[in-house]
């Protein structure tokens, strides 16, 4: 039997495109993850969802559904700005953009950080990549929830970074710098205060109201409120110095 160019063209188009259409019709053509994490196949956690299978396309809601770690905990741990979008709407891979170069080239905060955090939170085995870091609030969340011992907490601090929130890259660089000497400056944000160990309740008590978005600089906040920035700076600095 001979095959001409017309027959080959027809075969290629019909078999490839027809095959795709058939797969679509049968409901087996999926171009996105089902967001159903694979389960441990053996060991103590056999049959339980494996954090190692969290993909970059997973939203915090997907993580919550698979692992029962709430989107709010994740949002707090990774210091994402929930005034920009809802906690559950953040994708794991968003962290890579939010934390670009935050670890000063030493590592990165991204999807693997979510896997690591979830595994630590649930007490499951997981070995993160060498370049993976966790933001400080994630460590705090783990300790507050009693998920890690002090010893583990100290080890984790070696691979932690200050949270970088949804701000321009230039501002992020300032942000990281400002969080190293724990001195309140004009560029210090509310996220820095949390990083340095203050709780949200302590901040709100000190400023006498609800804490705004974490990305907002202290100076901008007090100026906008018509309050004297230097007074509050001193007050907050005193609290920071005691931590």
């Amino acid at each position: 039997m001979k095959m001409t160019s017309r027959m080959i063209a027809l075969t290629v188009v019909v078999v490839i495109l027809g095959g795709i259409l058939l797969a679509m019709a049968l409901g087996v053509w999926r171009t996105e993850s089902t967001k159903q994490a694979a389960k441990f196949s053996s060991g103590a956690f056999a049959g339980v969802s494996n954090p190692a299978d969290i993909r970059g396309s997973y939203s915090f809601t997907d993580v919550e559904r698979n692992f029962n770690v709430s989107a709010d905990i994740l949002a707090k741990a990774f210091a994402v700005d929930t005034t920009v979008k809802a906690a559950g709407a953040y994708l794991a891979k968003d962290l890579e953009t939010i934390y670009t170069n935050v670890a000063d080239g030493a590592g990165e905060v991204g999807t693997d950080s979510i896997r690591w955090f979830v595994a630590l939170y649930l007490g499951m085995p997981y070995t993160p990549e060498e370049s993976t870091y966790l933001p400080n609030p994630a460590l705090q969340a783990l300790r507050d929830a009693g998920k890690v011992t002090d010893e583990v907490f100290q080890q984790l601090k070696l691979r932690s970074v200050s949270p970088s929130t949804v701000v321009p890259a230039a501002a992020q660089a300032e942000h990281v710098e400002s969080s190293t000497d724990r001195t309140i400056k004009g560029i210090t944000t509310f996220a820095d205060l949390l990083t340095w160990g203050m709780t949200q309740a302590e901040v709100e008590k000190a400023i006498g109201g609800a804490m705004p978005s974490r990305t907002i600089k202290l100076r901008d906040y007090f100026v906008e409120k018509g309050l004297e920035y230097s007074t509050y700076r001193t007050k907050l600095q005193e609290i920071i110095n005691t931590l």
Binding site: I16, G19, I20, A23, V28, W29, R30, T31, E32, S33
Partner: peptide
């Protein structure tokens, strides 16, 4: 995803 698998077979 599944689509890559089907395309591989096709």
């Amino acid at each position: 995803h599944d689509s890559s698998f089907w395309l591989m077979i096709i």
